[in-house]
Design a protein around this nucleic acid. Structure first.
Lengths: 364, 364
DNA sequence: CTGTTAGCGCCTTCAG
DNA sequence: CTGAAGGCGCTAACAG
């Protein structure tokens, strides 16, 4: 109760504490680092008191400078607007917490240039490692990091030419799961809608797996539609194409595979159309459009399934494939931590399964 | 020149660059700090070359240690799951970027204990200032920060007993705007739904302003319902209460004000019920419930208006009051920056207006 | 214009 | 068990 804090009192340093405790800096340092067995209980008590009295808190920067590790790791995020990202982040934070790491979160807001700059900034702060979930990072961009000795772990997407640990959804299995569900429900004209592929490997993988799954099932009508959310005009055109297909009850374009084998199929009869969104942002855009066109009950008119399970999915009644986001984040940090501690194995992949959540939109 | 650096090539230091450029460290430092007018073009060129050759990047930690400022600011966030938070963050990042600051983002995930710990951690990293959007931070918790000389700016909520700059929505005006809109649309039995007030001043302010607005309009039926999203059972009970009110077409509880003055009111006739959500998380919970109970077209059955404008609002067709989130974040950083630069004025408030966005749910 | 000399706050030998 | 001395990478006076 005797602490009238008055004028911006310079924060106490280790020297202050040493003086206050009537000892040398070394002992304070030892205390801070938990080397209790090397301190007499008496000294230890004095130090404790001094620290409390001065409200001393060791300067992480100085410690980092000295021993070369500051417990900071970089977390480069392409898009915090995507619920997926936030969820992954929760796992990252939990793991960091458990491992005594501090994540430096950088949000590139879908701008490749930003990503580059942040990456550079991170090295400047001498982070011990980096977790990357970026849009356009190429091998060269990551050179100063992955190459320069700073360990890196990729989340959700690979970087071509870079060999690093990666953790994310098992895209192939997820796309198969979704496709099969739609086919099982009797949909036979499926449109896979995805953002421009760019450097994002997961988009490519999902689309590829979708096509493969369709082919494996001898399903005739597999379409892929690229939706560039950043380009309004392009979006309009793409959606118009979709409308035509939906309203024709099938549409005449058939991209998926070549031949329809013996399987009973629906050629001739009206096809049942379903939309397969590659992720939540796409799904939202589609839902908005469908609602505008078919009204409140659009879910019963056209089937929509999406990878990602944003909080509004339940509200909109769309079927989803939920990613184990928390675990993805957690594992990423664990991987990174191992690398920081010196593990040298070749690049590892950790592919986690998604979970199908069926809702009104696809259950007749 | 002896051993080609093969394993984890230690990052180049200023000393390395000096040697490489055949000069002293001081000149390098001068170069780094842009004191070009004090360097001969010749030397400058040599330095430039050396830096490029060594891929040198100054160590921010060391710089910070030396000059006492590391350009780091703390950003304490109560809930990244709330779109509001992410939007504010975008403004923060933009401003930081413009001012050469680096935000250290800490996500407390609605846990008061986490907030305390992060705040402490931030001081440990010697951040130059802190932007706080927390759930349960009280004056004492912020003592090591606001009191200990580190400037702090509050976002969206005040901290009792602490005098610091604050920026956020003009809650009173927003609540009035919403209330008036509902009344104008002919709703006369309005339920304000809000999370437990706890230490969150904005929740209290909104509720208070709502009641005041109702009273000013001589509107008889003003109710306040507290929805504790963290407590499933409690939520169920609260929602059941709401259902009763909605289905009675009015309900018998009247909490708002005491007397109904001369104004024409609806007593006797069936009242038109409307729900006023204090923020997006509440609105989402309400929407989910209403959809479950009244089906896809629930928006036409019961009116829902919410402060906050999450991306699914358009999809759900609910009326909202959009906050100037980006600007809130931007201003917060500007305030903080001024404080860091030494501005000493008394605590300032920056209240920004919200914007009403009318959608199906409240427009008959 | 340029280099030398001290530290910033802390940790780490290395002698007591 | 304890303390003194040196240095991490960088900047900030002072000399030249």
């Amino acid at each position: 109760m005797t602490t009238p804090p008055q004028t911006a009192p310079r924060r106490a340093t280790i020297t202050d504490v040493a003086r206050e405790a009537g000892t040398g800096k070394t002992s304070i340092s030892r205390y801070l680092n938990g080397e209790m067995n090397v301190l007499s209980p008496e000294l230890r008590a004095r130090i404790e008191a001094a620290i409390a009295r001065l409200d001393y808190q060791p300067n992480q920067m100085a410690r980092g400078l000295k021993r070369g590790r500051n417990r900071l790791i970089g977390m480069l995020l392409a898009d915090l607007t995507n619920p997926y990202t936030v969820e992954v982040l929760q796992g990252v934070e939990a793991a960091c917490h458990a491992l005594g790491l501090m994540p430096l979160i950088c949000h590139a807001a879908n701008e490749v240039e930003m990503e580059r700059r942040y990456l550079q900034l991170l090295t400047t702060y001498r982070v011990e490692g980096v977790i990357v979930n970026a849009l356009g990072v190429r091998e060269e961009t990551l050179r100063p990091v992955g190459g320069g000795g700073i360990p890196a772990v990729l989340v959700d997407r690979l970087v071509d030419g870079l060999s690093a640990d990666m953790v994310g959804l098992d895209n192939r299995a997820a796309a198969e799961l979704g496709t099969r569900h739609l086919l099982d429900q009797g949909f036979d004209d499926i449109w896979f809608v995805v953002q421009p592929f760019e450097q994002v490997s997961s988009r490519q993988l999902r689309e590829l797996a979708f096509r493969d799954a369709m082919q494996a099932q001898n399903a005739a009508r597999a379409h892929t539609l690229v939706l560039d959310l950043a380009d309004t005009a392009a979006v309009e055109r793409s959606l118009a194409e979709l409308d035509r297909a939906i309203e024709a009850g099938g549409g005449d374009r058939v991209m998926g595979k070549a031949g329809n084998q013996g399987n009973a199929d629906t050629s001739g009869t009206t096809a049942r159309v379903a939309l397969f969104a590659a992720n939540a942002p796409v799904a939202l855009r589609l839902a908005l459009h469908l609602k505008g066109r078919y009204g409140a009950g659009w879910q019963t008119r056209v089937a929509l399934l999406s990878i990602d399970d944003p909080d509004w999915a339940e509200l909109a009644g769309i079927t989803t494939i939920r990613q184990p986001t928390y675990e993805i984040g957690y594992r990423a940090v664990e991987f990174l931590h191992e690398r920081i501690e010196g593990v040298q194995s070749t690049a590892r992949d950790c592919l986690l399964p998604g979970e199908l959540i069926v809702r009104a939109s696809t259950s007749r």
